[in-house]
Design a protein around this nucleic acid. Structure first.
Lengths: 121, 121
DNA sequence: ATGTCTGCAAAGCTTTTGCATCGTT
DNA sequence: AACGATGCAAAAGCTTTGCAGACAT
C-alpha cells in the first residue's frame, strides 16, 4: 500500500457525503499536494475492486460510498447531496418475479429523489 | 415543428429499444443526411421538456424512452439492452415513509439488473 | 424584420490511458 | 534488475454551446 493509496483510503473510509473523485482529489491534495487526479482515480478503482467502496452514478459522475452493505440512496434535487437510506424491511421489494419469462434478475436498485431536510427548511 | 424535430420524433416515438442520442442520430440521418448531432440533442431535449420522452441514464450515457408513464427498467448486464418493466402492483414500493424526518420524497426509481432472455439462452 | 432553428466546430466535463520516471523489493 | 505505482499530459466519450447563416412568419 503506497502513501497515495493510503491517503485516498483515509479520505473516503469514513466519508458519508458520497464525494466525487474530484472532491476526494481536493481533500487528498491537502495531505499530498503533488498527487495527481489520475492516481486518485486509479486508487479509487482499486478500492472498488477490493469491495471497500461502492460506486454510484448520479448524472454523469460517479460518487464513492464506503458503506458497501446493501442499501439505498436518497438524492436531494436541490443541493445534490446524497444520503444513505437503510431499509429495515427488505421484504417490500420483491423484484425476482417482476420481469418476463426468461429474464434472470441478479440485483436491483431503488433510489429516492426529493428535498432533503437541509433544503426543506 | 421543423422537419428535423419531426424526423427525430418519428424516430423515437415508437422505439422501445431505449436508444442513445447517437443511435437516434444514425437512424435519423437516413431520412435527413445533413442533420447534425447537435440538432438531434437539442430536439431530444425539447421532447423531454415537453414530456414526450423520458431520459434514463445508463453508465455515462442517456437513453430515451417514449414511454413516459411511470414504469421501471431492466438492464441486461451482458448485451446492455434496456427493457421496460411494468409493475402491476405498485403497492410493493412504499417509499414515502422510508427516509428520515424532514426529507420530502417526490419520486423514486427502481431498476433491475441481470441477464435478459436474449442472453440467457 | 424578427425570432427561432440549423449545421458546424469548438469546448466542456468526467474518466481513462500512454509513457517516462520513481520507488521497492 | 524487475515490477508496479506515480505524475503529467493527452485522449476519449458524451453532451453542450457559440456563432453565422437559413428558415419561417
Amino acid at each position: 500500500m503506497t502513501k497515495q493509496l493510503e491517503v485516498v483510503w483515509d479520505a473516503v473510509r469514513e466519508d458519508k457525503s458520497h464525494p466525487t473523485a474530484d472532491q476526494i482529489y481536493d481533500r487528498v491534495r491537502k495531505k499530498l499536494p503533488n498527487i495527481s487526479l489520475g492516481t486518485v482515480y486509479r486508487n479509487l478503482q482499486k478500492l472498488v475492486a477490493e469491495q471497500k467502496l461502492q460506486v454510484l452514478m448520479r448524472g454523469r459522475s460517479q460518487h464513492f460510498d464506503p458503506l458497501v452493505e446493501r442499501h439505498q440512496h436518497f438524492f436531494c434535487e436541490i443541493c445534490d447531496r446524497v444520503y444513505d437510506v437503510l431499509i429495515d424491511n427488505q421484504k417490500e421489494i420483491k423484484p425476482a418475479k417482476l420481469p418476463h419469462e426468461g429474464f434472470k434478475v441478479t440485483s436491483h436498485q431503488l433510489a429516492f429523489y426529493g428535498t432533503c431536510k437541509h433544503c426543506s427548511s
